[in-house]
């Protein structure tokens, strides 16, 4: 069985700063990391490899040459092989153009080794869209299942997988025919410590790097900025709200004032003696 995990290098959004003058990202202000949801997707592939024999795990990323780092990171978690598509032609892609480029790379990977399952993180923390996974599935005409919180059954013989898919208030239990694409939530697993042999392998590993010329049947008008229907019109800080009342006095007085106001306005919510 061949599982391909799509991974993305993202700036650590917890740390990144915005240049207030230009309203653009100061990318130097944050380290680039493996998108946390994608790390869980790689981990889930490793878990499946433990469950059934003969699982081969590849990871695929699109990005600049530095994205090598997250492919190495994926090998530390337990992936067997890594592919990076890197070309200026891919730059500036929105979710539609991204899913197109990745689907072309996946077709090429499938020609080397047929793919049974594609895993993606629920979304990337720099874009927060969650649109690329289902987009890839549509382009390859395989069923997508998003927001997966647990893989409960995996049958290589029947080529089916049973998963729990998170809903607004509960979950769906679904049986899916492979090949299929799943996007995973963080609660699907815990990231484990990488075993030493993986670390050693990753340190020496160089991924397979493809440019657009290495991919087959590519319509270049669907790539990068040209192939992206959406554009960023403007960036702005939202209009400021008025702001309410600042409580004054000592800490004790402020707390007392606050409780008085709350009981005046929302008495029904509190069990007053």
């Amino acid at each position: 069985m061949h599982i391909v995990v799509c991974v993305k290098q993202v700036p650590d959004t917890k740390i990144i700063k915005i240049n207030p003058k230009t309203n653009t990202l100061d990318r130097r202000s944050a380290p680039a990391i493996l998108n946390p949801y994608d790390a869980h997707a790689v981990q889930e592939a490793v878990r499946m490899k433990r469950l059934i024999k003969n699982v081969y795990i590849s990871v695929l990323s699109m990005g600049p040459p530095q994205a090598n780092a997250i492919i190495k990171k994926s090998l530390e978690i337990g992936a067997d092989e890594g592919y990076l598509i890197s070309d200026r032609a891919f730059a500036g892609a929105d979710t539609l153009a991204t899913s197109y480029a990745l689907s072309k790379a996946l077709e090429k990977i499938a020609s080397i080794r047929p793919i049974d399952m594609i895993l993606c993180g629920k979304h990337a923390i720099d874009g927060d869209t969650g649109q690329v996974g289902p987009g890839i599935a549509r382009r390859l005409d395989i069923p997508p299942v998003t927001n997966v919180i647990e893989v409960t059954e995996l049958s290589e013989k029947d080529q089916t997988v049973v998963v729990k898919r998170k809903l607004s208030g509960g979950y769906q239990l679904l049986r899916i025919q492979m090949p299929c694409l799943l996007t995973v939530e963080k609660e699907i697993n815990e990231i484990e410590y990488s075993p030493l042999p993986n670390m050693l392998k990753a340190a020496r590993y160089e991924p397979v790097v493809w440019t657009v010329n290495d991919l087959q049947d590519v319509d270049r008008t669907q790539l990068g900025l040209k192939g992206s229907p959406t554009i960023v019109g403007k960036m702005f800080t939202p209009p400021k709200h008025e702001g309410g009342k600042r409580l004054e006095g000592s800490a004790d007085e402020q707390v007392k004032d606050l409780i008085t106001c709350l009981l005046e306005e929302k008495k029904e919510l509190f069990y007053v003696k």
């Binding site: 539609l96 969650g130 997508p144 998003t146 607004s168 229907p229």
Partner: peptide
């Protein structure tokens, strides 16, 4: 919602439009 996002992503791909 989980279903709305899932559906819109698939539909946008097939209609080749922005989302």
């Amino acid at each position: 919602t989980p279903n709305g996002k899932d559906l819109a992503s698939a539909v946008a791909t097939d209609l080749s439009t922005g989302l």
